[in-house]
Write a protein that binds this DNA or RNA. Structure first.
Length: 271
DNA sequence: ATCCGATGTCAAT
DNA sequence: TTGACCTCGGATC
């Protein structure tokens, strides 16, 4: 689930269900019990996301810092709360709703200062307000780097919130070879990529899934068999290895890059 | 019943 | 570059 759009959506959903009221905070699994006891009964005052990091603000200056990692999951539900299972790291509950967090890489109580340190080490996030966000800072790093653009897009210090799906899809949409060095990306190309990510990821927050296929390229529009993608979104290349490209019909390729699966169409994304 | 992979990241090598 | 961590659903036996 978790690329930046998921986390921004969670910030909105946690906020909508729990801000402004006393919240019951527990850690059925036990790994967050001490902090949960400190916060239990206090008010969730605000929620925020930066890249893949989620911040739940309690009272004036207490924050729960959550990072889902690869496996973390969040489940919302209506009251009454069901008995928790033993993997629930954090449960919030009030009279009307509950929400469970399982399997996160991080769930920790932090201060304002610690939170600021996290913002400081993250790059610009296409989903944060423009006044907080400088895509030029990302381009400065990219244009000085011999690292591949595929790796740079996954580097959260360069740009925050892009994961394996948006990386593959945005490079496809711009016809860019994932192995191209960052320094060979033109300002116009970066501009187009950034603008596209803003649009795609906002749509992702709205729909809570990743869709990247333009209407004119859907299988129906192209007269091809309907898609069989199994990850809840309509995409060009992600997890479509050895299947036909929606545009040219050639085979989508896959390769290992920095321990992740990369997907691209060698014909549409030429060096 | 068991295995494997996954939209992530870090530390150790 | 590899291993560790966190969880669970789908594929495979």
């Amino acid at each position: 689930m978790p690329e930046g759009h998921t986390i921004h959506r969670l910030a909105l959903d946690y906020g909508a269900h729990f801000t402004g009221r006393a919240t019951q905070v527990t850690s059925p699994q036990g790994k967050f019990s001490d902090a949960a006891e400190l916060l239990n009964g206090s008010e969730l005052t605000r929620t925020e996301a930066h890249g893949k990091h989620l911040f739940l603000g309690f009272r004036d200056a207490d924050w729960i810092h959550i990072h889902l990692g690869l496996f973390g999951k969040v489940t919302f539900g209506p009251a009454p709360v069901p008995p928790p299972t033993d993997t629930v790291r954090l449960r919030l509950a009030n009279d009307t709703s509950y929400v469970d967090l399982r399997g996160p890489t991080t769930c920790a109580l932090i201060t304002d200062t610690e939170k600021q340190a996290i913002h400081d080490r993250l790059g610009p996030d296409p989903l944060r307000p423009p006044q907080d966000t400088d895509p030029g800072a990302a381009y400065r790093r990219i244009s000085r780097s011999r690292t591949t653009i595929a790796a740079l897009l996954m580097d959260q210090k360069v740009i925050a919130g892009v994961g394996n799906v948006y990386r593959a899809e945005v490079l496809f949409r711009h016809g860019i070879d994932p192995y191209r060095a960052g320094k060979d990306l033109t300002p116009a190309e970066w501009d187009a990529i950034w603008t596209d990510l803003v649009g795609l990821m906002r749509e992702g927050v709205r729909t809570n899934r990743i869709d990247t296929v333009r209407p004119e390229h859907t299988p129906e529009a192209m007269g091809r068999p309907p898609r069989v993608d199994d990850h809840g979104g309509e995409v060009y290349v992600y997890r479509r290895a050895n299947r036909p490209c929606h545009i040219c019909g050639g085979e989508i390729r896959t390769a290992d890059l920095a321990a992740r699966n990369l997907f691209w169409c060698p014909n549409c994304q030429k060096p």
